[in-house]
Every structure is written in structure tokens, then in C-alpha cells.
């Protein structure tokens, strides 16, 4: 791959990442990946009426509460990020 091509490919990739939140890349950390997974899952639970009902029945909560708690959880589904190595 010529350096020029690499350069354009990268900018395109960055652009795509900015555009499509949740898309992975080669250097994705485990934390980022798992956080994306959880956010996707939580969004999917809120987005599919049957999944919301299912959780509401299992947990004895109202659907509104389930949706609210799931959306709240999207903020930080997997705890705080790991400490970044200072270099």
C-alpha cells in the first residue's frame, strides 16, 4: 500500500467512525468494545417492544421504568474506563 493510499484510507476510516458510532477498528480496546456492545444491546431492548415487555414481566417493573433504566444504563454500562497508561 502506498503511503498516499494509506493516508486517504485512514481519513476515510476516521470519517466513517465518526459517522457510524459503534463501529470497531483494529486498535479498539476491550473496554471500548464491550461498552459498545452493551450500548447496542440496551438500545435494542428499548427499540424492540417485545424485549421491553419481557424484561418488565420478569422483573416486575413497568415498561416505562425498564426503558428509563436501560437508557440510563447506556451512559456507562460497564463501569468506568480502565486507567490509561501514561507515556
Amino acid at each position: 500500500m502506498s503511503s498516499e493510499l494509506r493516508y486517504t484510507a485512514n481519513t476515510q476510516l476516521e470519517h466513517l467512525h465518526a459517522r457510524y458510532t459503534g463501529t470497531g477498528h483494529a486498535d479498539l480496546s476491550k473496554y471500548d468494545w464491550v461498552t459498545h456492545q452493551h450500548r447496542d444491546t440496551l438500545a435494542s431492548i428499548v427499540g424492540h417492544p417485545t424485549l421491553t415487555s419481557f424484561l418488565a414481566i420478569a422483573d416486575g417493573e413497568s415498561k416505562g421504568r425498564v426503558k428509563f433504566e436501560m437508557t440510563e444504563k447506556m451512559l456507562q454500562p460497564c463501569g468506568p474506563p480502565p486507567r490509561k497508561d501514561e507515556d
Partner: peptide, 8 residues
């Protein structure tokens, strides 16, 4: 039903 696709 995706996270960043409108419709919700």
C-alpha cells in the same frame, strides 16, 4: 432497531 438509526 439500531442505536444510531432514527425511529425510536
Amino acid at each position: 432497531a439500531r442505536r444510531i438509526v432514527p425511529g425510536q
